[in-house]
Design a binder for these strands. Structure first.
Lengths: 152, 152
DNA sequence: GCTGAAATCAAGAAAAC
DNA sequence: GTTTTCTTGATTTCAGC
């Protein structure tokens, strides 16, 4: 799909504030509110905009312990296997296949260390996991929403 | 701040769809629209709700190459130093101090491998960085928004 | 404290152009 | 793309639990 500079500026506005009104966004990009709505509808239909969500303070809802776990898997493990296995665990925030020593990197979030340990044990019990290496998050230094490069 | 089960269900609704109307959320949690708005305002003021954002398909916007980089730093490096250094680079999506071998973990997003390499070189040029270990993301398997535990 | 109801005002949706 | 119109939701005020 074709995205022009105006679309990128609309996206940047929505990333900064998903509840901004169409008129408000229109004022920023020099467009009328209906024109903005049509572009947003088009971007949603095309899958560029996947949805609108809310940024929560993880500590406030109780799950404040995070870790990144490198997974080392058996030779014949497929990404699909890792996907279905990790999706089963509610503590998995994100998972990626990666280059380097490890086969996958899993981002975990749990209530506390005990909960994290329990989630990790469940992960390690997956049949294709040969070993893991964990990095427990001590503090979050930077956390930006999706980067939207400036229109050129 | 005190968060009850109704607050958690409101938060869950807003994480699922930040543009849901107060009446719509109210129907889910059995509350009137003004009551929902008052709770949302309170949660925002308390910092539990940090903001509303939009989930973008990173590929559509052009920055589709990702990597996780472990930073190994000199002995006297403070988290604050890492914070200011990583914030300077627009490619840094997130950064954490971690336990384990590495001192910090940096999540990078760039347009392509060349761009990623360039960002990595800039990171490695920071005076406190002694070495790095990179994991380039091959594919994203799981990507969930902030977990909101179910009210008990 | 909290809530719901009603009135006012702004925003969204769908025409016409 | 804009402007107009109509409908819907947001927001304030006020009274009741």
């Amino acid at each position: 799909m074709q995205i022009d500079g105006v679309d990128q500026r609309i996206i940047a506005s929505l990333v900064a504030d998903a509840r901004a009104s169409y008129a408000e966004i229109g004022a920023r990009v020099s467009l009328s509110a209906p024109a903005v709505k049509r572009r947003v509808d088009r971007l949603r239909a095309a899958g560029v905009i996947r949805g609108f969500t809310t940024v929560i303070d993880p500590a406030a809802v109780g799950w404040s312990t995070e870790a990144f776990v490198e997974l080392f898997c058996t030779g014949r493990t497929t990404p699909a296997q890792i996907t279905v296995a990790t999706r089963r665990h509610p503590e998995v925030v994100a998972a990626y296949t990666v280059s380097g020593e490890a086969d996958a990197l899993v981002h975990l979030r749990a209530a506390d260390i005990a909960h994290l340990e329990q989630a990790l044990e469940r992960l390690r019990a997956e049949p294709f996991v040969t070993s893991t290496r964990s990095m427990i998050v001590l503090s979050r230094l930077v956390d930006s929403p999706t980067v939207v490069p400036a229109p050129t």
